[in-house]
Design a protein around this nucleic acid. Structure first.
Lengths: 132, 132
DNA sequence: ATAGGCCTTCCAGTCGCTGGAAGGTCAAGC
DNA sequence: GCTTGACCTTCCAGCGACTGGAAGGCCTAT
């Protein structure tokens, strides 16, 4: 299976797959002509990576998860710890975004959005504090 | 006012201020010895930028907002449009993060997190679908 | 004179790709 | 056998928004 088929099978772009090989996440064998040769094992790794990335795990977290996945003697506690840490990171991001959203929504709400120059959004950015 | 004082006044690291000059967001004058010289005008620009960045506006959005701020003939509609677009972007991010969070929280919840190898998190990443 | 704390520029690295150039390979059609 | 076009290869550069560090200049205090 060539890289294009692996890309279609895993949902990852070919470029990304090459990049993952570059950074050592997987090492597909090569055929005689130098093409990468993806078998079921490689496709499994790629779909694993695609799913982990879709859940927002960093590449290094993916690397760790992949290692645990391939280690049948792993402790599920190790996996859970990574996921838990990531969950907390996501919660932090959501919280930050919600704060931004609240401020911004208020500003947008207060701005007339017409052809006059008066603008609570700019005023707030200039002087600090909320609109009004 | 030297860059260090400007950094303390605006809350931005000196490095970031130099970077902002590099990309043309502000052009502080220089004193005879080549040091950047920050006056009230520059400090205002820097605090404006710091606040806009804190609301998650991209550098290019900041550049546009800054231009509108400095244009007393602006239409508030132009400002509002930028803010509205950014608000939608934030909503998209929050929504994506919430989806991730939901899946991940479920997986974490289902994982025993002990010293045994069985792990619904890895199983889900491997086979797709939810835990269980 | 020297110490230290600023300031300067420039280059490289972060993260996770993504685009593009230059060239090799392969299967189909004529 | 030759061309066409779709694939594959490597390598280098760039994105956004900084951040770190090296090498060197300046300024003030002792």
């Amino acid at each position: 299976m060539n890289i294009g088929d692996a890309a279609r099978a895993s949902g990852l772009p070919s470029k990304t797959i090459r990049y993952y090989e570059d950074i050592g996440l997987l090492v597909p064998p090569r055929t005689a002509n130098g093409y990468r040769d993806f078998g079921p094992r490689e496709i499994n790794i790629l779909t694993f990576l695609a799913r982990a990335r879709a859940l927002g795990f960093t590449i290094e977290e993916c690397r760790a998860l992949l290692a645990l996945w391939q280690d049948t003697d792993r402790a599920s506690a190790d996996v859970r710890r990574i996921a838990q840490t990531h969950l907390e990171e996501i919660d932090r991001k959501i919280s930050d975004l919600r704060d931004m959203r609240a401020t911004l929504a208020n500003l947008v709400h207060c701005c007339a959005g017409d052809d006059r120059p008066d603008c609570p959004i700019l005023e707030s950015l200039a002087r600090g504090g909320a609109a009004g």
